[in-house]
């Protein structure tokens, strides 16, 4: 089973009303791989990530994580919605980092990081504290354990959010424009943590506008436009010799800025 890719997205369709946002997306992520997802605004990048951990339902295709369907179970060859409990079980193993951090404002940094390990994994408070303070130290916040999110800068909040996801010891990390809401001078500290994770062998699917990060840290680029993957290539190839017209146009627009 461990030969199987960690994540298999097969011909996934997603509509919002009449608008087809994902038009048959297929993407495979191997264990330990870092894949950067690029694409113009509104192309469906966030929707794709949100389908992977079933924050959105899908209208066609399937998403298989570590050998298990996410959000559905198969009955007589058809997909039926899975129970809240079982979906939650799969989500434990998929960390997600949001553009707007979504830290729990009523909990301290350490509280944010220990909440799910205690209440979902059943760790003792002492174990969770140890794991949590270790992770916060790893993202450079070992001194701010008792700070509330409102007392932290955006970059610090996002690092807490990364530590919070890591505390579940996920097999896959999803990043949805983790640095887009940050002041430019704070972007670097968050990217550094992400690079560190990548170097450590974490499997990551990263939606980003940071081309430099995509080039250095990703093994593969998946370029999305209009809800389909238009081009998939190693970064060196994608950035120097994009095969498709749409990718060339996208990169051209970015370089003009």
């Amino acid at each position: 089973m461990s030969e199987r890719p960690l994540l298999e997205i097969v011909d996934v369709h997603k509509r919002f009303g009449a608008v087809e946002v994902l038009n048959g997306i297929s993407l495979t992520v191997e264990r330990g791989e870092v894949v950067a997802v690029l694409g113009p605004s509104g192309s469906g990048k966030s929707t794709l990530l949100r389908c992977i951990n079933h924050l959105e339902t899908i209208d066609g295709g399937r998403i298989v994580f570590d050998g298990r369907l996410v959000g559905y179970r198969e009955v007589d060859g058809r997909l039926r919605p899975e129970s809240d409990r079982r979906t939650a079980r799969v989500r434990r193993e998929i960390g997600m980092v949001f553009q707007r951090f979504n830290l729990f404002p009523h909990l301290t940094a350490l509280g944010n990081v220990t909440e799910a390990p205690v209440h979902v994994l059943g760790l003792s408070r002492a174990e969770a504290r140890e794991r949590g303070s270790g992770l916060l130290a790893r993202v450079g916040l070992g001194e701010r354990l008792d700070a509330y999110p409102s007392e932290l800068s955006g970059g610090q909040q996002q690092r807490v959010a990364i530590a919070r996801a890591l505390a579940m010891q996920p097999k896959l990390m999803l990043f949805d424009e983790a640095t887009s809401a940050l002041d430019p001078e704070l972007v670097g500290e968050v990217l550094a943590v992400m690079r560190d994770l990548a170097a450590d062998g974490m499997t990551m699917l990263v939606v980003t506008h940071e081309l430099e990060f995509a080039r250095d840290a990703a093994r593969r680029i998946a370029f999305i436009d209009d809800g389909v993957i238009v081009e998939e290539a190693p970064p060196a190839e994608f950035f120097s010799a994009p095969r498709t017209e749409r990718a060339r146009a996208f990169l051209g627009r970015l370089h003009q800025r």
Partner: peptide
């Protein structure tokens, strides 16, 4: 976004309601 963050951590609906 709070509910989404809680779900993404594997919290069930009732737990999310109670804790978050």
């Amino acid at each position: 976004g709070q509910v989404e963050a809680a779900k993404s951590l594997g919290m069930t609906g009732p737990l999310t309601m109670r804790r978050i």
